[in-house]
Design a protein around this nucleic acid. Structure first.
Length: 573
DNA sequence: GCCGTTTTCGGCCCGACTGTTTTCAGTCG
């Protein structure tokens, strides 16, 4: 079983945590974290890069030392540097760092003074009062630790973007109403279009901050106030979502938005560029010798360090700064660019609306065409269609199209890819369709080799148009299945088929790193809603955000093409 | 531990809030 990137990144993160507790050089700690981030963002497995004898030190943040540690782990299955650390620092201390208020210093104190290594020992010490006697601890921290353990928080929960949006919209409305408030904007990972967010970062511009922090504390949905000052406040909403508020004057809007949007790694890189130019960049502006020279807009901030404005979705502290400096930023796909939707269900299988109703919904969403792709017979729970029912549906679609102006319904199917890689309907009927969306709905646990071979075989079918929700992951519920995405992408390029980016809130599958693989291989991506009801077309905006994080331009998105052009691409198979 | 329009050593982003202090360390974003 080869070691995956995820495991190597985890090992580096763990080393960073333990080194922090050991009070190592903070920049050394950061080096491990940077490397972990680089590795998580790779579309390519390190094990394959090493097999191809590629130079790992070419990766940002990875030098000779860390490259050697990667090779060590790939060869031996474990990282000896981490094993060695465990001799002096127990691995379980990591779990203590996750508690609010406990950082490396206090965790070290816990371990060295009271030999506390885990949550239950910590709870015991908090209950008997010995915790508050330690230097740097007091009654308040002791109390908070007890509360946190009782509520079983501390395990970092992340929220689906759609759930965060449901909480964010009324909050923005509420804050906007406050007298003196000029602007309210959600920044942070939400603005960067991440598929999940850990909290809501709310930026407000106004002259005075205290009143606004107070109003946030008074917000009916606020459960408790964690911190409150004159320019920032943190509260937890009833549903458990944390909100970080930041208030700055209007003149600092751009600098604050930049700072509060992050990512942290991106900000560090931008501030470093500032430093090299003799500038200091903070959330209030860009300063030369204490004189503010920029800050009203983000564009000004970037210009001050010689860069064009960088879209938030790219700000992960990876290669976007270099790309910007070279004038090589992509012109990212935008919501208005989608012309159609190639994965839509109707009541003929498990949808909740008629084809006619879905047409109306798609038109309302600004689309000009869509493919009806109901499930195939194997998916009996979804009333999957057999060949006869597919043909009947096609005849109805033909009649429907005769009455439509300025909109076209394409005939399609979401056909199950069976365990052996064959498709769940006879070749004859598949050949009659405009769009064949292949999907894996069973045997998700196959080995990497078998799963990949299965999908490659399905792609070889001459009628196969695109692979639906490629990894099958469901956020918070199901991990991605074990799949060699590099082979899948290469094969898609060879066969001339496409990959779906499924826009359902819990799917958002292709992942962003796989979008980049597709882009590099010249494989077009179709951003589909997989709508089961009329309102589901709204989810396309989530897919767009994901595609933007994957650096996709309009030209790289299949369903941004006008119908005529799309038909040509579909026929090419 | 990484990295280079201050290059192979000496730097490495910056500020707010809390709680424990009595001038500030620790944590957080």
């Amino acid at each position: 079983m080869p070691i995956r990137n995820e495991a190597i990144a985890d090992a580096f993160e763990e080393i960073a945590d333990l080194l922090e507790i050991e009070e190592a050089n903070p920049f050394r700690v950061r080096a491990y974290r940077n490397a972990a981030r680089t590795i998580r963002g790779l579309g390519t497995e390190l094990v394959e890069m090493v097999a191809r004898d590629e130079d790992l030190t070419a990766l940002p943040g990875i030098g000779e030392d860390l490259a050697a540690k990667v090779r060590d782990m790939l060869e031996s299955g474990k990282m000896s540097a981490l094993e060695k650390l465990h001799e002096s620092v127990p691995a379980s201390l990591e779990s203590l760092l996750r508690l609010p208020g406990l950082g490396p210093k206090r965790v070290k104190t816990l371990y060295s003074r009271l030999q506390i290594e885990n949550l239950s020992q910590l709870a015991r010490a908090a209950r008997d009062g010995s915790l508050s006697q330690l230097p740097g601890f007091g009654r308040k921290i002791e109390q908070r630790i007890l509360e946190t353990i009782a509520a079983r928080r501390g395990s970092e929960k992340r929220w689906m973007r759609s759930a965060a949006a449901a909480a964010a919209e009324p909050l923005v409305d509420y804050l906007t109403e406050i007298p003196g408030v000029k602007r309210v904007i959600i920044a942070g990972s939400y603005r960067r279009g991440k598929e999940t967010v850990g909290d809501l970062d709310v930026l407000v511009t106004a002259a005075k901050g205290e009143a606004i922090a107070q109003r946030l504390a008074d917000y009916p949905e606020t459960r408790n106030v964690v911190a409150r000052g004159s320019t920032r406040a943190t509260v937890v909403l009833r549903d458990g979502l944390q909100v970080d508020l930041r208030v700055v004057p209007e003149a600092s809007f751009g600098a604050a938005l930049h700072y509060f949007t992050g990512s942290k790694a991106h900000n560090i890189q931008v501030r470093r560029r500032g430093q090299q130019r003799g500038l200091k960049i903070n959330e209030y502006g860009v300063f030369r010798n204490d004189r503010r020279i920029a800050g009203k807009t983000e564009k000004q901030v970037y210009r001050s360090v010689g860069l064009p404005w960088i879209p938030p979705e790219l700000r992960e502290g990876g290669v976007e700064i270099d790309a910007a400096a070279e004038g090589a930023l992509p012109d990212l796909v935008e919501p208005g660019d989608l012309r159609g939707d190639l994965h839509v269900h109707s009541g003929d299988s498990d949808g909740r609306a008629t084809i006619e109703e879905m047409v109306a919904g798609a038109r309302d969403a600004g689309l000009r065409y869509m493919a009806i792709t109901d499930h195939s017979r194997h998916l009996t729970v979804a009333h999957g269609l057999d060949a006869a029912r597919v043909r009947k549906q096609c005849a109805r679609i033909d009649r429907l199209n005769e009455g439509l102006r300025g909109f076209r319904v394409l005939k399609g199917i979401e056909v199950d890819i069976l365990e052996d890689g064959t498709l769940d309907l006879p070749n004859g009927v598949l050949a009659e369709l405009d769009v064949v969306v292949g999907a894996v709905h069973s045997h998700l646990g196959l080995s990497r080799r078998k799963q990949t071979d299965r999908i490659l075989r399905a792609m070889d079918h001459p009628a196969f148009t695109m692979l639906a929700h490629p990894t099958g992951r469901l956020l918070g519920k199901r991990e991605p299945c074990d799949l060699d995405m590099e082979r899948v992408v290469r094969h898609a390029a060879e066969c001339g088929c496409f990959l779906e980016l499924n826009s359902q809130p819990a799917r958002l599958d292709l992942l962003d790193i796989h979008c980049r693989l597709a882009r590099d291989a010249g494989v077009l991506v179709s951003i589909n809603s997989d709508a089961h009801s009329v309102k589901d077309f709204r989810n396309l905006s989530l897919g767009i955000a994901q595609a933007r994080r994957g650096w996709l331009t309009k030209r790289q998105v299949l369903n941004s093409r006008p119908l005529r052009e799309l038909r040509k691409l579909l026929r090419r198979r």
